[in-house]
Design a protein around this nucleic acid. Sequence first.
DNA 1: CGATAACTCTGCACGCTGTACAGAATCGAG
DNA 2: CTCGATTCTGTACAGCGTGCAGAGTTATCG
Lengths: 222, 222
Amino acid sequence: MATPGPARRLSESAVLDAAFAVVAEHGFDALSIRRVASALGVSPNALYTYVADRADLLRGMVERVMAAIDLSALETTTLSPADRLEQFAVEMRRTLLGHPGGAALIMTGPIDGPHSLLLNEALLRTVVDAGYSLDDAARASYSLQVYVLGTVMLEAADGGTGDPEREEALAVERRAALEHVDASGVPLTAQTADIVARYNTTEQFRWGIRRLIDGMLTTPSS
Amino acid sequence: MATPGPARRLSESAVLDAAFAVVAEHGFDALSIRRVASALGVSPNALYTYVADRADLLRGMVERVMAAIDLSALETTTLSPADRLEQFAVEMRRTLLGHPGGAALIMTGPIDGPHSLLLNEALLRTVVDAGYSLDDAARASYSLQVYVLGTVMLEAADGGTGDPEREEALAVERRAALEHVDASGVPLTAQTADIVARYNTTEQFRWGIRRLIDGMLTTPSS
DNA sequence: CGATAACTCTGCACGCTGTACAGAATCGAG
DNA sequence: CTCGATTCTGTACAGCGTGCAGAGTTATCG
């Protein structure tokens, strides 16, 4: 080894593993330096060898989650560019909601790590392939990310996990809750309760993202 | 008074005022029951008369922020429905980013208070006015909220406050940071650095929300 | 080989958090 | 006047991030 001192007993990767394990078992709110350390059988301050502070730990976790997103739908040339974008968006939403703490993590700070750049790059390639200018491709790429991340945030706040069964259960629950809303001030909302209850579903996500994509890919270049 | 016991020295409204004052002065991360209590010159536990717990305080604050959003653009019948939606979206983003802690607050839990319902209702009216079915109007209303809230979340994580000057300063800063990115793996991102640096600006927001709106209002009913 | 300097990890400490619990003070109703 | 409900204070506990001092381990240099 090139450096003096005792060999490290852990690695940043092991710390991240433990952090995700804590989130998976006890939930994102229970994530703490002390808990991760105890899961690793190590004193809390030992972690500061591997991460600068709690925020740095979160950055590392965000990077992991972003890396877990499968970009391959964007390269599936048998699909139209619009279909590629839609399929990728669905995949991105699914991954973020399914990953333990994924949704909570994307809200903890800027999303600008290496894997986020790669994701942006893959999106850019797809839109450019569709025949759009680089500038418009960049704007479209960001808008798509906005939509996906916004969805994930709202669904996570509502308790969603990406699991279809849970999605269905939440929709039923939400439908029941809407029965108790006073309809007098919000008649249209009351009339559309069946739709409102299903806001946080894959179908609604597809509905919106598809229209965003179509809006972006049909408007002539600015 | 109908109830026994000493008169209340505060009100939920006063507690919320103090909470926003704390956020305005010390930032959202410094918001705590104890700080709010001390700002009110009262012991921490006194707040529990007015709010059930910290989460309940946050709920109240979210409600306040949602109430601050001006819905009048949606009723401006001199504009086309699409223009009304766009103008409202811009206003909603501006309000959330400008309100102290507004962006952070919308990420703290579900957004389903009374004022959120009113906002949804006003959106529904506008889309229905444009000639769309109630069901599509509901879906469109949610999609627009997703886009606005997603934008606000990402911009807030990046340090945005809705202030145009700050927006400009952040764009310059971000442009400089992109110089140091290794362009080899992400050539298109590097080529579009001028756009990427301006992702979190009002222009980019208008670009995206307009295309979402157009995509929603031109696609025939499902 | 022995000294040195670098490095990892532990233990203690500080100030902060939300909030449970007990009790004092204050009031309206019987 | 008493009783019970209500508001607020004070104390206490378990937990948090992390600064600091020191013990132990190791590669490199004289």
